[in-house]
């Protein structure tokens, strides 16, 4: 009889603390700019991942006035999945990542925030692992890492791999940040932690993500890591030029000298 009872009980009850975890809500922030082609798929994958794992969630799309009609697709998705799951919080023009997070968080009802890229390089299937990791160590931040365990990348040539490894090596030596992937942007934060950190970070681009982790260390927040596979942009161009490298080095040295 006991066997039958366990078989007939719904999935989420199998977890002994199911009740507690169901109070947690995860707000996914998706800043977009010209992601018309990728947005339907990332949203579909997010919905799939969350419905399979049973965690409570919402997806906040922050579109910075994309000229390609990203907003139109987002509105269609909102109709399909409902405005309690998909929240559109567009802005007039491109205003940078940090302020996009601030803007999105104002409307977030979850107690945890997940940030990720909308270009399909970050797969939502890892989110349940992030959540499990967070609960396991009661971490303030869980960061996806391409540099550990089964983590990795797809679509990078040798040159790109070398640049990435060298940059990571130098960063680890100079900053000793206590996390292996500093420039990645697939992370889970406690909401209040992200709010506090964003207020302290001033850099842009790659360096912004790096500064978030460095400041987190300064403030004694705990960081957990989950290996992720990073599949470089399926649609659209991935960019890594000389300018990115120079601004990365500048940012790195600034953090080195000031933190």
């Amino acid at each position: 009889a006991a066997e039958e009872a366990s078989r007939s009980s719904p999935r989420f009850r199998r977890e002994p603390k199911g009740r507690v975890s169901r109070q947690d809500k995860y707000s996914v922030l998706l800043p977009t700019y010209n992601e018309r082609e990728n947005l339907p798929f990332i949203v579909w994958l997010l919905v799939k991942s969350f419905s399979e794992s049973g965690f409570n969630y919402e997806i906040i799309i922050i579109d910075d006035g994309s000229p390609d009609g990203t907003r139109d697709v987002a509105e269609q998705l909102e109709k399909i999945y409902g405005s309690d799951r998909i929240l559109l919080r567009p802005r007039e023009k491109k205003l940078g990542l940090g302020t996009a997070y601030i803007h999105g968080m104002k409307h977030a009802t979850g107690n945890y925030i997940i940030i990720m890229d909308a270009d399909l390089s970050h797969h939502p299937k890892f989110i349940p692992e992030f959540i499990r990791k967070q609960k396991e160590g009661n971490f303030d931040i869980v960061s996806g890492t391409r540099y550990k365990g089964n983590g990795g990348v797809y679509g990078w040539d040798l040159k790109r791999k070398i640049i990435s490894r060298v940059a990571n090596f130098i960063t680890q030596i100079l900053l000793r940040p206590g996390a292996s992937d500093l420039t990645g942007s697939f992370r889970l934060y406690r909401k209040e932690v992200l709010q506090k950190l964003i207020g302290k970070c001033i850099s842009k681009g790659y360096v912004f993500q790096m500064e978030m982790i460095v400041r987190a260390r300064q403030l004694n927040y705990t960081i957990g890591e989950v290996p992720i596979s990073f599949v470089d942009r399926v649609y659209g161009e991935s960019k890594l030029g000389g300018n990115e490298i120079v601004s990365f080095l500048k940012g790195l040295l600034t953090l080195f000298a000031t933190t």
């Binding site: 983590g151 990795g152 990348v153 797809y154 679509g155 990571n168």
Partner: peptide, 12 residues
């Protein structure tokens, strides 16, 4: 680390 960088063919 460059030589052992995982290529995530399966994930792609």
């Amino acid at each position: 680390r460059v030589a052992t960088f995982h290529d995530c063919e399966d994930a792609a």
